[in-house]
Simulated assay, not measured.
Amino acid sequence: MTTLVPFIGLAADRRSHASFSRSFRLLAAVTSALLWLPRFWKTRKDLAALAGMSECERRDIGVTAFDIENMLALPVDRDPTEVLARVVDDRRHRRES
C-alpha cells in the first residue's frame, strides 16, 4: 500500500498566502469605509455645482435638471458622477445614431 504525503512547504505557503489575501481584503474594506464620507461630500459638492449652473450651461454638457434630481435620489453609497456620466454618454450615442 502506498501513502501519499503532501509536501509540507506547499501547504504552509498556501495558508500564508490565504492569510495575506484575507488581511489585504480587510485592509481594503477598512480603507474604503474610512474614505466613504469624504467621497460622499465631494460628489454632493459636484452635484451642487451642476445644480447651480444655468440651463444653457447644463445643456452644453448634456445634463438636465431632471438628471441632477435623479442623482440626488440615488443611495448614498453609489457614486452619482459615474451614473450621470453613463446617462450623458447613452444620450450622446442615441443622438448620433
Rank of each mutant, 00 (worst) to 15 (best):
R59P: 00
F66Q: 15
D60T: 13
E57D: 15
T2I: 05
R91D: 01
F7A: 08
M71Q: 05
F24Y: 07
D46S: 14
A73M: 09
E82H: 09
E82N: 09
L47E: 00
D67W: 03
V87K: 02
A12N: 02
K45G: 05
R39D: 05
L72Q: 10
T3Q: 07
D77I: 01
D79R: 06
F7D: 10
S97A: 14
A51E: 12
L35D: 12
G62W: 04
A29V: 00
W36R: 14
E82A: 12
E55G: 13
V63W: 04
T64W: 08
G52W: 05
V88L: 05
M71H: 00
R15K: 09
L74H: 03
A29R: 15
P80R: 00
M53T: 02
A33Q: 09
L26Y: 13
M1S: 12
T31E: 14
L74V: 02
P6Q: 08
A51F: 07
D90E: 15
P38L: 06
R78Y: 04
L27A: 15
T43Y: 03
P6S: 07
S23P: 00
S23K: 14
D77G: 06
F7I: 03
S16F: 02
A48W: 10
L72K: 09
T2E: 10
P80T: 01
L84Q: 00
L74C: 08
T43K: 03
A65W: 05
E82Q: 11
C56K: 15
M71Y: 01
T64N: 09
M53W: 07
V30P: 01
A28G: 06
T43Q: 04
L27K: 15
S32R: 13
F7K: 09
T81V: 14
S16R: 14
A65Y: 11
L26I: 09
D46I: 06
R59H: 13
L34W: 05
G52P: 02
A65P: 00
E96M: 13
V87W: 06
G62A: 07
L34R: 13
S21G: 02
T81F: 05
L10H: 13
W41Y: 14
R14M: 07
S54M: 03
F66S: 10
I68N: 01
R92E: 07
P80H: 03
S19D: 14
F66D: 11
H17M: 11
G9V: 00
T64H: 10
L37W: 11
R78E: 12
D79I: 02
C56N: 15
A33E: 12
D79E: 10
E96S: 10
S97C: 06
A73G: 10
E69G: 01
L84S: 01
L37H: 11
H17F: 14
D60I: 07
V30R: 15
E55D: 15
R94F: 03
L26V: 08
A51G: 06
P75L: 04
R78L: 10
D90S: 11
E57M: 08
H17T: 06
L10G: 07
L50V: 01
W41R: 04
G9R: 02
W36K: 12
E57C: 06
E57L: 05
F7V: 02
L72G: 01
H93I: 08
P6A: 10
A65Q: 08
E82G: 08
R94D: 07
D89Y: 09
